[in-house]
Simulated scan of single mutants.
Amino acid sequence: MQVQDQLRGTGVAVITPFTKESKIDFSALGNVIDFLICNKVEYLVLLGTTGETPVLSSSEKIEILEYAYEKIAGSVPVVVGIGGNDTAHLLEDFKQLPLEKATAVLSAAPYYNKPSQEGIFQHYKLVAEASPQPVILYNVPGRTGRNMTAGTTLRLANEVPNIIGIKEASGDMAQCMQILKDRPDGFLVLSGDDALALPQIACGMEGVISVAANAFPLEFSNMVRSCLSNEYAAARVINDKLIPTYDLMFAENNPAGVKAFMYKMGLIDNQLRLPNVPLSQPVYSAIEAWMANNR
Results as ranks from 00 to 15, higher is better:
F18N: 05
G81S: 08
V105S: 07
F18T: 08
V79S: 04
L47W: 03
K101V: 03
F18M: 10
P54V: 08
P17A: 13
V76Q: 05
T49G: 02
G9C: 12
K101R: 15
D86A: 15
L99K: 01
D34I: 03
V12W: 01
A104S: 12
K95M: 10
K61V: 00
I72E: 01
G48R: 04
L99Q: 00
G48A: 09
K71T: 04
T19D: 04
V78C: 14
K40I: 02
Q96W: 09
N85R: 13
V79Q: 06
D25R: 07
L56F: 06
S58L: 13
V12Y: 01
L47F: 06
G30M: 03
E21P: 02
V45E: 02
T103K: 09
V76S: 05
G30T: 06
A104K: 10
A73T: 07
F26L: 06
E21H: 11
T87K: 12
A13Y: 01
I72L: 05
S58W: 05
T53A: 01
N85Y: 10
A88T: 13
A102W: 11
L56N: 03
E70F: 04
S27Y: 05
A102I: 14
K23M: 14
Q4F: 08
G81F: 07
L106S: 08
E63C: 11
F18E: 04
Q96N: 13
Q6A: 09
A104I: 09
I64V: 14
Y67S: 00
N31G: 08
L36Y: 06
G84F: 09
E70R: 15
V76I: 13
S75Y: 06
A104T: 09
G9K: 11
Y43W: 15
E21C: 07
E60G: 04
G83A: 05
A88F: 10
L36N: 03
I72Y: 03
A68Q: 00
S57M: 11
S58F: 07
T49S: 15
V79N: 04
V76A: 08
T50H: 06
E70C: 06
V55W: 00
Y69G: 05
M1F: 10
G48Y: 01
V32H: 09
I15T: 00
E52L: 09
P77Y: 01
D86E: 12
T10C: 15
I62R: 12
L65E: 01
L106R: 08
T50V: 15
I33H: 05
L97H: 02
L91W: 08
F26K: 02
S107G: 11
Q4Y: 08
E100Q: 15
Q2W: 08
L56S: 06
T19Q: 06
E100K: 15
G48E: 02
G30V: 03
D34R: 07
N39F: 02
S27E: 14
P77I: 01
K101I: 04
S22I: 13
I24Y: 01
K71D: 01
E92G: 03
P17S: 12
A102C: 14
T49E: 03
A102K: 09
E66M: 13
L7V: 12
